[in-house]
Write a protein that binds this DNA or RNA. Sequence first.
RNA 1: GCCGGUGUAGCUCAGUAGGUUAGAGCAGUGGAAUCAUAAUCCACGUGUCCGCGGUUCGAAUCCGUGCACCGGCACCA
Length: 580
Amino acid sequence: MNADAKFTRTLVTSALPYANGHIHLGHIAGAYLPADIYVRYLRLKGKPVLYIGGSDEHGVPVTLTALKEGSSPKDVVDRYHEANAEAFADLGISYDLYGRTIWDLHADTTQRFFRALDAGGHIERQEMVLWYSEQSDMYLPDRYVKGTCPRCGYEDANGDECENCGAQYAAEELIEPRANIPGDTSRPILKPSAHWFLKLRDFKDDLKAWLDSHPDWRANVRGIAYGWVDDLRDRCITRDTDWGIPVPVDDPEAQNKRIYVWFDAPIGYVTNTRQWGVEAKDDAAAWETWWKDPSTRLVHFIGKDNIPFHAVIFPAMLMGQGDFIVADNVVGNEYLNILNRMTGKAEKGSKSKGNMISVRDFLTRFSRDALRYYLCAIMPESRDAAFSWDEFLNRYNGELCDVVGNFVHRSLTMTVKNFDGVVPEPGPFDAEDQALLDSLPEQLDGIAQAFDQFRFRLAVERFIEMGRRANQYFDTKQPWVTRKTDRERTATTLYVCCQVVRVLCAAMAPFVPDGAAKLAETLGIEVFVGGPDGGPDSWDAAKTPLPAGTPLQPPVVLFPKLDKDYVAEIAERHARGEAL
RNA sequence: GCCGGUGUAGCUCAGUAGGUUAGAGCAGUGGAAUCAUAAUCCACGUGUCCGCGGUUCGAAUCCGUGCACCGGCACCA
């Protein structure tokens, strides 16, 4: 909680999305938006913070996609890397670097990790029996084998689990196996193969001690992590494929194998930090401060499917390096589902159901502030949440536009019209003026505290509450009435409102950066900077009142309201399964 | 099957050192106001706090158990 004492900088990562498909709203709400909000908050506070992300581009599914569409794995990952990087940029996810795991630098980092673990005796060669296609002359990784489910008889079951009945089984239990390769009609056979395993058990005590030292983590993360740590097994970290990073061992059996994508993916955080150092600092060693200095605070943002990797496996890999830090927090979110309007029930977003909402498409219709606001307001922090078009409309219009946006607008419009476009000179403050002014630092601190605890929904709630209190004050003071009778009273009221607006501007910046930027311009406030080297504390600076006489630009609408009919129309089209 | 998480008003949720009549927003009803993005403000809640059992002077809050939903369970990312 009190990170300040122990840490001088923060390294934030968001799960590397798999470059085998487009990112959708579920990904955003779980791993990217919360991280971005947190990072923007720290930057605003002037804290040194580095935000690293990138594409995860290896692995068998990519080769399968390529096989099916008749292209190459490189084509596939190039396409999705570009599309996803663009979607993140459009959403305002403010990475310091968004990298790629196909970079040569990444092979280097990954092999270094592998070698260090190997040298420490944490990697072990084992023989195992796998499906092999004689026609294609290759071992068949799980996804490459289809067959009949031994439990329910479903004929299109995967190599290790059945989509139909959910059963999981050993590969050799599969009935009527066949290669999932176009043109391969041979029947796979079982054949021995050597693979390399990470001895997770070596790290059991360290992992446990580490988890024990972080009782403040989210319950879902702790629960799953302890479940794994209490029963650690060796984990295979190689695959029979040619799409990935070569296994750095001197063994002919390793020639046709590559490092398992899940081993190299989290190492991408390290690689991309290295690349950032080279690009931004022209310093090939800059990354080490961020990964080896114990005064660096490492925070991972992920969806719950990623918890075992970030709370157990990757930390073990880091521990095995000897001189790396491990995460101070693993912020794991639940899932964001999609509300089905017809049934009124939340369902998983899936391609086959045709209910996915792509980020790119969404942003062609609605502002990113609107999306960021809504997703943050319903963020699946402790249980699954569901995206609903009706709720999207109601919460964005009813809270951000009507409560906060409108307060800002009514305050500034009246000030500019009646006081020559400057913050008015106030008269004596009465009890209500003083109470509201005094509450501002507390209210801002309340939001900061919520961010510090990764409680983003609470932060949104407190932010809107600030707007509600301000509106109450405005209505109580009735400046539109006093304007005709008591200029000093009106000046005082609007002076106070300007101070609220100024605080709101800082408070909204992490959530809705575009609205905040517009408002900052209206108020003539510095645009917030900050980053890996830190900067001025613009957050606390918001607690200092804008002086009377500060010139104001004519206000613009920060958050335009959404048209109800238009949203309804989009919702209808979505419900009909039209591509969105 | 084993393990973890969640289950509070019509809807979305807050609420653990256990303690006065369990809260907020939305929706609904009535009213006020008209500066403002037809935006705001005020008033109005008879809820089995998932069920059952237990600990306690007292439990939404602790323990046990059952149910529902979501997820993890060793090579699926």
